[in-house]
Design a protein around this nucleic acid. Sequence first.
DNA 1: ATGTTC
Length: 481
Amino acid sequence: MLPEKLKRIDDTKIEVPADYKPGMRVKGIIYVDEILEKDLESHSIDQVANVATLPGIVNASMAMPDVHTGYGFAIGGVAAFDLDEGIVSPGGVGYDINCGVRLLMTNLKKIDIVPKLKDLVSVLYNEIPSGVGSKGKIRLTPDSERRLMLNGARWAVEEGYGEMSDLERIESGGCIDGADPDLISKKAYERGRAQQGTLGSGNHFLEIQYVDEIYDEKSANAIGLFEGQVTVMIHTGSRGFGHQVCTDFLEVMERAVSKYKIELPDRELACAPYKSPEAQDYLAAMRAAANYAWANRQCIMHWTREAFMEFFGTSPRELGMSLVYDVAHNIAKVEEHIVNGRKKKLVVHRKGATRAFPPGHPDLPDAYKQTGQPVLIPGDMGRASFVLIGTEKAMNETFGSTCHGAGRVMSRHQAIRKARGRAIWREMEDRGIIVRSAGRETLAEEMSEAYKDVSDVVDVVHRAGISKRVARLRPMGVIKG
DNA sequence: ATGTTC
């Protein structure tokens, strides 16, 4: 049951009124329908309300339909702050800075690979390092790690991992300006040294998929997607490097909270005024970690192309292996939005939320100027993933943002208990999905039933108009950490 | 998410 104070606005969203909790400066908006409303945790609602108390918050504290409890800010949260009055908070970005998704398409059809699927998955599994604490094939010197932080995916391309033309199909060109390697701790340098080009664990994955349904023929055509087409989705972030950056700056922010006398309903919301050196330093360090993640997805995509080349004995070009797009879903960015009819720069925190810019937006590459920004939504490993497109309505309502995935319904611990005595890999294989995993418990934690149905999540954002459904992808082969 | 409890 929803708390009585919450008001349903329409069939896709509810309002958390500004009198829900003391100190709220704006209302909260949670995008859920009657189905997902049942999975809404009261703690997530409290977190949306807590964020609404932060100085300089603009319009509303928002949450997407895949919302669940996170560190301070809910995962699935979107919050934008005024640059004069507002704050920056590491909790609004999360531990996995620039966790995100990229989608690679091919000109292969599902029927071309079904008979060889198991072998193809093995080749990929051997080629892409995965698992907790996994080390990659790259060893960064302090100097190369610096250049990586400054240049992101461009660093990877310059090192031979991919092509320059990949860069225009990455959010922010695969490199956000304003990173400062001098603000990165020795510990973070050390943790990042051997983890570039690794998948990690948890919900991170590499998946071979096929396009199973097209909803919007025109946009799908413009992107290059067709029914039965094989695609590869890569979901990973900045690994131990970003985690360390977040840890380091939470400490800085805790001190800033007392220094600037910021009153917080929850110490996990530790933050600093946007214009303070603490906030500017965090943003510069966060950008270094964001660039680390973009380079990471670039390297992994490159090895995916190499694995396909080795397996099929033809070049990636002949296999049509071009990048569709790459999105960040854990990041804070300074963006221009219209507030009360006037253009204004804001610092937008997206934590488990994806940018969804509309057709014509100046930040989009030429390839997507007319279509709008591709939005990539990974589901759980057994069901589906989606390609959506950004909309004008998202610009007006959610600072150009939409959902990011399925969202858990079971805790990791619950899932492990529920999976006891079962062979999840075999259950998947019976459904025609080949899975390889480095970690023993990862498959249990990540089984389908531990997640909401991503189709329900996507249905809400589509009906709400904050992004538009283009295609559904079904998993065939999964590599997990 | 995470050298899965510095």
